[in-house]
């Protein structure tokens, strides 16, 4: 039985090279705890996706170990690991293969060998949560991009994993859709699911992620809260990642006592606080 603070995922000395020899990951050490909301960021080719694929056992380390809920991925089959760590791919079209939304959601539980009763319950639960009840009998091919993305996550969640990895959940979405998606993931996190997102959207990272892992050339070069990460400007420069505009602005105003602000609301509150004195003078 794991306690609240216990690691659900441990990575020790992970090195990984692809069959053709390219080294993708070097010396990764990290722990993920129950109920975390973590973002992995970095340029394409930095190893983000490669690392994430080790989390559900799709890839096995060349050197080192990845231990998921006490199981070493080298000794466990992918079927065993994927029931505890879910992975949602960037393009939902790579996942969706059934003729109806309902069948799609039932796919995971079916592979787990659950009873028909249990499968039905899980499908209903997920379709309700992801607001896809009305689309139950439709063909996934004809759903909108946002609906397909939700269906992809729903079908992975139907397996009741304790940790879910979502690769680029907001590519191609507009502001409202992106926020809705992250709100959904945040709600899942509050319900107890561990959430790992791979993303380029620094604004959303600042708003929702509690922990950020920055990858550069196969190594973890930063591991901390978004606030901590955004202050380390020299490291971020090397990765060509920029903190959200408002964070950069607050850093520029550090002479006036500003710390890193993660969103505009926080910035304006700080600005009001710091400028009360000068404004009163007028």
């Amino acid at each position: 039985m794991t306690t609240a603070d216990e690691d659900i995922l441990r990575v020790e000395g992970l090195d990984f090279a692809y069959p053709d020899g390219t080294v993708a990951l070097r010396g990764i050490d990290l722990e993920i705890h129950r109920g975390e909301f973590l973002a992995i960021i970095g340029q394409n080719g930095s190893g983000k996706t490669t690392l994430a694929k080790h989390f559900n056992g799709l890839l096995k380390p060349s050197e080192g170990d990845v231990i998921i809920f006490g199981m070493n991925t080298k000794n466990a089959s992918v079927a065993e690991t994927t029931s505890r760590v879910g992975y949602v791919f960037q393009n939902p079209d790579h996942q969706l293969c059934h003729r109806t939304v309902e069948e799609e959601a039932a796919f995971g539980p079916k592979n787990l060998g659950l009873s028909d009763e249990e499968i039905k319950n899980r499908v209903n639960e997920q379709l309700k949560f992801f607001d896809l009840e009305a689309r139950r009998n439709e063909d996934p091919f004809f759903l909108s991009k946002a609906e397909r993305q939700r269906l992809a996550i729903a079908s992975v969640l139907a397996m009741h994993p304790e940790l879910i990895v979502v690769d680029e959940p907001t590519t191609g979405m507009d502001h409202r859709q992106s926020v809705a998606m992250l709100e959904l993931l945040d709600e899942l996190n509050k319900k107890g699911y561990g959430v790992v997102i791979i993303t380029h959207n620094m604004q959303l990272v600042a708003e929702y992620a509690k922990r950020v892992i920055v990858m550069l050339e196969g190594r973890v070069c930063l591991d901390g809260s978004p606030r901590e990460a955004f202050t380390k400007t020299e490291i971020l420069e090397k990765t060509f990642l920029k903190p959200p505009q408002i964070a950069r602005l607050s850093l520029m105003l550090s002479d006036f006592g500003f710390g890193v602000t993660l969103n505009t609301k926080e910035f304006v509150e700080t600005l009001n606080e710091k400028s009360i004195g000068t404004r009163r003078k007028r």
């Binding site: 791919f89 996942q95 293969c97 992975v156």
Partner: peptide
Amino acid sequence: DAMTSRGLD
């Protein structure tokens, strides 16, 4: 990979 990730062996 996506199929395997949903338990299809």
